[in-house]
Nucleic acid binder design. Structure first.
Lengths: 191, 191
DNA sequence: AAATAGTATTGACCTATATCAATCAAACCA
DNA sequence: TGGTTTGATTGATATAGGTCAATACTATTT
């Protein structure tokens, strides 16, 4: 159950067997079906979810009912509304499963306690958050400075797995463009 | 010199006098004039800069020579190209002073050593990075889902200090719109 | 296997925002 | 202090990408 998890952790920090066993106690496994919600708007995000298997997405829905993709997470990645989770405020997001998935959940109390009892996990999350900042910053610059076509080409070059795994209408939303525009861009690139 | 710094740190974690004295040894103060560069594209970002006083900006410049504002930092905030700093790769950003500023600089080695020797600073940065993720995510959603006018209204509501302190052409760039469009939005809102 | 729902493509048209250019206002500095 | 650079406003025009609608394609369900 924790194979993917600890292989990810070990990519970033050194962790002993003993520490691993302690860390395990803070998590509970959960299976989630396709289209099932992990979080709905208005609810507090009570867990960080690590994806052992499968595929999740997070998104917001505006007044017109349009969905805006925020993140995708598959094997080896985390998913949560970090704002809601940390501030214990109602979320403005939805999180659901694009594919049937296996998750490891940790609660807010569990998270805080784990970081204090296992300092190496404090370090792991600091590094994780650093990386997250970097990738968000990249995406932000792209959304500010690039045309729709440039954004798609960058995604293809830098995150081909995402383009493979995720339906096009969701990719369009992730890039902040319409599915029609993405379809036209693809045609233009291919011909 | 460290007044603003430790008041910020104490907002997030408990830190002893002893720890404070140790932390101080990792930083060096630096004064920087208006328009002076702290970082130029192609150089590795060798320091995290804490702003004790003044105002900095970071921005990228595209092939057409257009500047895209990434961040602003004034009293109590950090500034760096975190990607370049952490990965020790050449930066794609510029950082310069909008106003004459007083900074506290810490090198990469200093940073790593400080986090290991003063675990409470590991915690401080984990929290700092958390908050950074949250604000970047907010900005990202706005850039994807909101119109130019909505983005400006949100900025006014949520970051009025930024709107006060920063020239309009830079605010426009920060929002990913042109100065002309921002000017028109302001007129529309006011009348 | 048919029926249904979801997803992608294409075309016609529209609108928000960019671009270009001129003027105006303010800030800097020699 | 007047001249020069820098930033803001306004107008005219162009365009990338959105919207709406029809059709085609692909999965999923019964």
């Amino acid at each position: 159950m924790f194979e993917v998890f600890f292989s990810q952790v070990k990519d970033k920090v050194l962790i002993s067997e003993q520490e691993q066993n302690l860390v395990k106690t803070f998590f509970s496994p959960k299976k989630i079906r396709k289209k099932q919600y992990l979080l709905q708007e208005g609810d507090v995000c009570k867990h960080l979810a690590f994806v052992e298997k499968g595929l999740l997405r997070s998104y917001s829905v505006d007044e017109k009912g349009t969905e805006h993709m925020i993140h995708f997470a598959w094997e080896g990645w985390w998913m949560a509304d970090i704002l809601s989770f940390l501030s214990v405020e109602p979320s403005t997001y939805f999180i659901d499963a694009i594919e049937e998935s296996e998750l490891l959940l940790i609660s807010f109390q569990g998270f805080e306690e784990m970081l204090l009892k296992v300092p190496v996990m404090e370090r792991y999350f600091r590094i994780l958050f650093q990386n997250n900042i970097i990738s968000k910053e990249r995406r932000l610059i792209q959304s500010l400075a690039y045309s729709a076509e440039e954004k798609y080409l960058h995604l293809l070059a830098n995150n081909p797995k995402l383009v493979q795994k995720i339906p096009q209408n969701l990719i369009a939303s992730y890039l902040g463009i319409t599915p029609e525009t993405l379809s036209r861009i693809k045609r233009k690139i291919t011909q």
